[in-house]
Design a protein around this nucleic acid. Sequence first.
DNA 1: CGATAGAACGAAAGCGGTTTCGAATACAAA
DNA 2: TTTGTATTCGAAACCGCTTTCGTTCTATCG
Lengths: 342, 342
Amino acid sequence: MSMTIKEIAKLAGVSQATVSKIINNYDDVGAKTKERVLAIMKEHGYRPSYAAQSLAKKVTRVIGVIYAGKINANFNHPFFVEVVSAFKKAMGLEGYDLLFFSNEQFHQEDEDYLARCQHYRVDGCIVIGGEEVEPSVYDVDKSDIPCIGVDIRLSGPKSAYIMTDNLQIGTLAAEQFYMNGSRRLGFIGGGSASHISNERLEGFQQTARSYRLEMRKEWTVQGDFFEESGFEAMKELLQNDELPNAVFAVSDLMAIGAMRAVKESERVRIEEMAVIGCDDIIAARHVEPPLTTVRQDKEKIGRMAAYMLNDMIHGRIEGTGVKLDPELIVRSSCGSKRRYVT
Amino acid sequence: MSMTIKEIAKLAGVSQATVSKIINNYDDVGAKTKERVLAIMKEHGYRPSYAAQSLAKKVTRVIGVIYAGKINANFNHPFFVEVVSAFKKAMGLEGYDLLFFSNEQFHQEDEDYLARCQHYRVDGCIVIGGEEVEPSVYDVDKSDIPCIGVDIRLSGPKSAYIMTDNLQIGTLAAEQFYMNGSRRLGFIGGGSASHISNERLEGFQQTARSYRLEMRKEWTVQGDFFEESGFEAMKELLQNDELPNAVFAVSDLMAIGAMRAVKESERVRIEEMAVIGCDDIIAARHVEPPLTTVRQDKEKIGRMAAYMLNDMIHGRIEGTGVKLDPELIVRSSCGSKRRYVT
DNA sequence: CGATAGAACGAAAGCGGTTTCGAATACAAA
DNA sequence: TTTGTATTCGAAACCGCTTTCGTTCTATCG
């Protein structure tokens, strides 16, 4: 077992209080005493108990990380990996560690994540993705711990959110199809319960309409943001008598799966089906053909989430919502050099 | 602020002890009392303080996650993402949450990760990758907290490690090159200080030698496991007067970068350069040409790491080392259908 | 009816720290 | 020498919860 502060104190012939002051850099400790105690601490590899400290100080220096919803948030989804990675780095600079809650036995018991956050008394928390249409269990408003949502709209005085502007995402995709000469547009969504997917669809539809591009409802199918679902979705799409000549998938993973389905089908060649994805994950540029995609600045999202959360923790800002601009990355899966038959 | 157990006790007209017993499911509290207290707790959204609990109980139910070394361990490296994801899931099933330590301000202060683990009094910890040749700072042996290393050999009574058999990895790659008809072999490593990279090289060399395949030392270059370094490494390789006709990179990311370099060069076409990677990350099958790779079972590594750690925590096993078998996945970047000129 | 064994509950001593505030000591100025 | 002012230190209360152990109360039995 680890040593306690009391033992160190005894060893050094001083009081607990003095040792504690040394740990916390108080300035009312003599230089020689300090040195001596420090030496003893080092010699015995003493580390103060975090639990005891945070109990006494009422501060944890820990941020809770919550993967919300069943829809699309996931520890190993490339989009979130990048976001969380940037978030982790930025929070680390501020001295925070990250606590990832297990969600495996979550649904057994009727406790929600926020309860876990309260339980741990984390200084703040980040909720990752998964906004669903039905009212969510994340009753953030009642909580008084600072919370930032990524791809999920959290409201309340101590909560904020950040996401890419989803309407714009849809718009950019549709515009590119127009420029590319595609006239018949399909859509692969992330589930009809997913808010962000629906908003992208909305932007996509609006723009398609204004350019007089054709969209049929049988050309709109839903997946779950992951690759396999994109593959299945495209297979389903290819069942139709008449086909679109372009498809926008709301995630690169699904777009990649969709392209695979096209390649495997004998009905249509990949050159005849323009594809646009969303996110610009690393794999996007490596697939064949390289994937045109609506890029989200994952690094920035993570970093800003950290800044905003940090500000909220220190009472510097009130809860707000931020939307970032997406950026179209044109590659040959829907390059402007190619022309498609209308 | 959250309520305390004392307030709940007062509200319910019972003692602290009774409330605590209810929280911890003791069986010496009356049914009616229990019900009443439970109702009050729910009504006020009471959650016991984790810090206070773990201080009193001396148990944390938290596992520390450490990304070790500067070489290759990284939060967003696809290999580790998969491993940690599986680990997280398995530990979650056991009721553990994961604490990710920030390493951003780590090197400023002279404290090592294990100290952080001790500080938090985590029940166990997992150290991810980054084994280096020089003696590491992870003085695990001195620590008494259960530790499992992934891709890093931890020793000591309370520590174990798990990794894929690196010699075999090298062997499989070389054998495939032989079967494929490649006779001149290049190698892209993960840094000469990386143990796992060096072992793969060793297996590769041994097998190459036994098949009498040619390896020149100028055909062996070092990267850092990430894509850009593979790109640079291949560019460097291509400077040579004479070239290999096959290259084994110790990570898929580097292999992908290397293929990109080949494609961009006018000196040699991608069809003339067989490439094998390692890991079998998701992108491997999607690049063009699809990447032949030595697969590591990332899911299994993560899962087994969890089991082993769990066993160690409960004193069921002593520290050991486990090596898993790799598996060759043949795709067209080095498929057996193609033949290379010797 | 008294004795007795459970059942139900509470007092109090930790767990390992922090922090306030007063005491003791040192040193400078008067 | 006396007084005043820093400087250095420690006693003790507290943070919120767990757990032991003893006490009280109730129900059952001879």
